[in-house]
Amino acid sequence: MHSVSTYQAARLVAGTVESYFAHHFATATSNGGQETAHQPHAPEIEAMIDTAFWASLRHEEGVSPKVTLAFLPPDKAGQPLIFGKRLRFTPDVLTKLAPAVERPGIHLGVWYDRDELYIWGTTREIPGNCLVLEVIEPGLLVVKHRRLDGFGKFVNVAILKGDQIKIVDEGTAKTPDCPFVVTSMLGFTLPSFWNDSMNILVQLAVSMRAHGRGGSLLVVPSGRDAWRDSIIQPMSYPIVPVFSRLADLLQQESDAASQNVWRGAVNLAVEAIGGLTSVDGATIINDQYEVLGFGAKIGRSETSERVEQIIITEPIVGNEPLIVHPAQTGGTRHLSAAQFVFDQRDAVALVASQDGRFTIFTWSTTDQMVHAHRVDSLLL
């Protein structure tokens, strides 16, 4: 790229992002993955981040731009909307185009010619492992990529906020007791699910965070009622019989022709459950994704002790585990969730804060204590 970046974080992170994509492109190829987009290199990554950062600080008619960029040529995009002429890739052009593509799922297509980036149009369909750069708010950018199976939240690679850089630590997925919902957020799945992976808890987490009211979701084992010992009775809103729409959909088999319809139905069912978590109290589902109730108040089991300490981690490079009192992880929701998992060690608790923080509580058999996984960086 001929231009010289003036956003220092762009230069610092470009090489790391290049290495990440090089590894994932190689892994996808060796696993027989579907055709992917162009592998990005550091100069292209640096130029995209630099331009997007300065665009994020501008305003168009008093509104800060929110825009998502996809790095690929038009022939790699599905049903692209191609402009009559190439547009220069500058902060000014990005700011002016942002209102047209700020709705979810629309990407501005960015490509290069003779070492210069340009904007060629828009698209909703991009291939697996395609580099995506999202401007979320002024000074806040997220580097991510589309999952190979094309379904669900994109996988975050790096988060840049001003001069702060957070690199997602993929090694977290290999640590003992790392819950599958976290490994899925990190972009890892079991080999048998390489081409058809979907973790519903990830989608539920996204839905919970999106409504902005904060909420708790408890996931308990199906066929067992021990969890009721940790819920103050009577429950505010029990569901009888259980709501099984999502569970029924996940048991259905769909061919390629009906895949989009099925995914749309799954999304609607997820949103319905996510909406319940906005009500005060906890929403309870079992591990088959049947809804058992919502608005539930958590109370310490009569046969348990009060939880006094937990371990807290964040899947970010350089993060060190901390052992703290559960009250230090947040407010009442967090303390109640930690107590619930301490009492019901085969359960999982997801907690969204109004400020966007998101924590997943599980029991660690290795550490013999509740483990709080801070994953808000993975949900941006």
Rank of each mutant, 00 (worst) to 15 (best):
C178F: 08
I165R: 12
V202F: 03
E170D: 11
G187D: 00
G171E: 11
H211N: 08
T172M: 08
V182S: 08
G187V: 00
S192Q: 02
M198S: 12
I165K: 14
P176H: 01
P191L: 05
L186A: 07
I165T: 09
A173Y: 07
K153D: 02
A173T: 09
H211V: 03
M208S: 07
R209V: 05
T175A: 10
T183L: 04
S197F: 03
V157K: 13
I165S: 12
N199A: 09
V206F: 08
F151P: 00
K153T: 10
S192Y: 00
S207D: 09
F151S: 04
C178A: 14
G212Q: 04
F193K: 07
Q203T: 11
V181S: 12
T183G: 07
R209L: 10
Q203Y: 07
F188K: 13
I159G: 02
K166Y: 06
V206E: 15
S197E: 01
G152L: 06
T189I: 02
N199R: 05
F154V: 10
L190Y: 10
A158D: 04
R213P: 01
K166I: 03
V168P: 00
R209M: 08
H211L: 01
M208G: 06
D177C: 03
K166C: 03
N199T: 11
N156Y: 09
V155L: 02
N195D: 09
N156P: 06
D169M: 09
T175Q: 15
A210D: 14
A210V: 10
D163V: 12
V182D: 08
F180M: 07
G187P: 00
L204S: 13
F151Y: 13
V181R: 04
P191Q: 07
A173E: 09
V168E: 01
G162N: 15
C178M: 13
N195G: 06
E170G: 12
N195I: 05
F180G: 04
C178G: 07
G187F: 00
S192D: 01
T189Q: 02
V206S: 14
Q164W: 08
I200G: 14
I165H: 14
P191H: 06
V206K: 11
D196R: 10
D196Y: 02
E170I: 03
P191V: 00
P179A: 06
M208N: 08
F154A: 15
F188R: 13
D163K: 14
C178L: 07
G152M: 11
L186M: 05
N199W: 02
H211S: 04
F154W: 12
